[in-house]
């Protein structure tokens, strides 16, 4: 088991996790996480701070989690992990701890899927004053907690093309591209990605090419996927002149084997 050290991000940031899984919390606490049980009334301030952070991070993309969804579809079935500004921790010998307690500054949510080896990741974000390093550390924390599961084959993640989260995921290439364009999503230019050992094997017969992540390019690739093709993101390329994200991908005419 590896412990993620958030110390390069900021002096007072500490990892936290909120969940209804008592065993996960016990393990996390032993690793230095701030922990909060989702079913405990003692966490009222934490829960409110998390909802406020979610609003702050995702309001601009109109993807704030409704309050009941935060409980029914995140805290109760899975976990929320992130970094908290631990105001209680004195930064030097003569500074008094703040009574207000830790304040979350980043978050990511993981919930199980019906495939016992796969978890779904969403709502990965950091407060506007946060850094890309904090975002990356949050992702690392999530990966660490996912890896604690006895069966861990990887994660599914949804992300808009060109967002911070998608660019972070692309750094793990090769990753499976399960959907390139999702018309039933509020933001159709959203990808569903598969990361981890179940998804990272690109067959040698897959053909590499360049994908311009604009609506036309994504729709065309989605048509191929609908027809039974498989695709992987191999990495990011320099964006086009209009800022359109560009990805190097590999496409196979048939279905991928998710081992």
């Amino acid at each position: 088991m590896k412990s993620v050290d958030p110390s390069p991000v900021a002096r007072r940031l500490r990892p936290y996790v909120v969940s209804a899984d008592a065993e996960l919390l016990r393990q996390a606490e032993a690793m230095g996480y701030i922990v909060q049980h989702a079913f405990s009334a003692s966490g009222e301030a934490w829960f409110e701070a998390l909802r406020a952070l979610d609003r702050l991070v995702f309001q601009s993309s109109a993807m704030v989690l409704p309050g009941w969804v935060f409980f029914d579809c995140a805290l109760a079935p899975g976990f929320v992990v992130g970094l908290a500004d631990d105001l209680r921790a004195p930064s030097s010998g003569d500074e008094a701890p703040s009574p207000s307690g830790p304040r979350p500054v980043s978050l990511a949510i993981a919930i199980p899927t019906a495939d016992p080896e796969i978890q779904l990741v969403h709502s990965l974000g950091v407060a506007p004053h946060g850094t890309s390093e904090a975002l990356k550390t949050t992702w690392d924390l999530l990966v660490e907690l996912v890896a604690w599961s006895p069966k861990s084959g990887g994660v599914l993640a949804t992300a808009g093309w060109g967002t911070q989260a998608e660019e972070l995921y692309a750094r793990h290439a090769p990753i499976a591209l399960l959907a390139a364009y999702m018309p039933a999503h509020d933001q159709p230019m959203t990808a569903t990605l598969g990361l981890g050992p179940r998804f990272s094997s690109v067959p040698p017969e897959a053909v590499a090419r360049v994908l311009a992540c604009d609506a036309d390019g994504l729709r065309a690739l989605q048509s191929e996927l609908d027809a039974g093709a498989s695709a992987w993101v191999l990495g990011a390329l320099a964006p086009g002149s209009d800022g359109t994200p560009v990805r190097r991908i590999a496409v196979l005419a048939g279905p991928m084997e998710a081992r």
């Binding site: 409704p66 969403h122 999503h185």
Partner: peptide, 18 residues
């Protein structure tokens, strides 16, 4: 009745469960 947004359907229903 707090209707679910499309992205909520995707992330909280279609992809994780059934």
């Amino acid at each position: 009745g707090m209707p679910m947004a499309r992205w909520v359907f995707t992330n909280m229903a279609e992809l994780p469960g059934f």
